[in-house]
Simulated assay, not measured.
Amino acid sequence: MRGVVFRGLEELAIETIGMQEWDELLETYAPQGRVYVSPTAYPDEELFALAQGVASKLDKPLTEVLAIFGQSLFGFLAKKHVGISSKFSSFEELVVSIDSVIHMEVKKLYDEPNLPSITTTIENDKTIILKYKSNRKLCFCAEGLLHGAAQHYNRVLRIEHPQCMHEGADHCVLILHLD
């Protein structure tokens, strides 16, 4: 996982549990002296352990914290990579461009980014079907990212998740319902 994602989790953690609690999580779950640098890759296990630590401190399920994190992460990444986020004039345009544009830009920025596979189908002007597949199984974080994107574009979004990799499926299906 890239350091930029850890930095996004750090921002959320400091906002929700405070700097001292975040420092305690780093002491517990990260190698001594670890500093997360945006373009550097770090073990996925460190992110999952830190996220679980945040969930424990908030007394919330990890899945809920991952969704909150995803929503926060969208804003964090949009500010950090304005050149990418400014390419899209609507939520729908952004969503259908995740694999073809956004992930291509990420590959230019980061060496071997290990991105999920995402395909989209527009059902109608209010419904998009999104298929998500990743060996990291961060579908709850992906839901949060989508909510963050919808908020960015002032859209109301409801997501159905009828098929999930956490329940043995090959990929997740997210049905995006727009206002």
Rank of each mutant, 00 (worst) to 15 (best):
L138I: 09
P113V: 01
E123T: 12
S86N: 13
H171F: 15
K108I: 01
N124I: 04
K131L: 04
K79R: 14
L145I: 14
A149I: 13
E143T: 07
R158S: 14
Y110Q: 00
F91I: 05
E92S: 14
K131R: 15
V156S: 12
K108D: 10
P113E: 08
H81R: 06
I122F: 03
G83Y: 02
I122N: 05
G168V: 01
L130Y: 08
I129G: 01
G144V: 07
C164N: 14
G83K: 02
I129R: 06
R155V: 11
L94K: 05
D170W: 07
V96K: 12
L138P: 00
R155T: 02
D170P: 02
G144T: 08
V82S: 09
E112Y: 11
K107T: 03
K87L: 15
H81A: 11
I84R: 10
E123Y: 11
G144F: 10
D170C: 00
A78C: 07
I98N: 06
P162M: 06
R158C: 07
G168H: 12
E160D: 15
I102E: 02
Q151V: 03
L77P: 05
A78E: 12
H103M: 02
R158A: 11
H152M: 10
V106G: 00
N124H: 05
R136I: 10
T127G: 00
D125S: 15
D111V: 07
S100T: 12
L77F: 13
F140D: 15
C139P: 01
R136H: 11
K131G: 00
F76I: 03
I122H: 04
V95P: 01
V106Q: 02
L146V: 05
K126E: 03
A169F: 08
L94C: 07
F88C: 03
D125N: 13
C139G: 14
D170F: 11
H161A: 04
S90F: 07
F140N: 15
M104K: 15
E112W: 05
S85M: 09
A78T: 00
E105D: 11
K108G: 03
I118R: 08
S97G: 10
Q151L: 12
Y110I: 05
K131N: 14
L109P: 03
E93W: 07
Y132T: 08
R155F: 04
H166C: 14
H152Y: 15
E93N: 14
K126A: 01
K79E: 15
V156Q: 14
H103C: 00
E143M: 15
V96F: 01
L157F: 03
E112C: 01
F140Q: 13
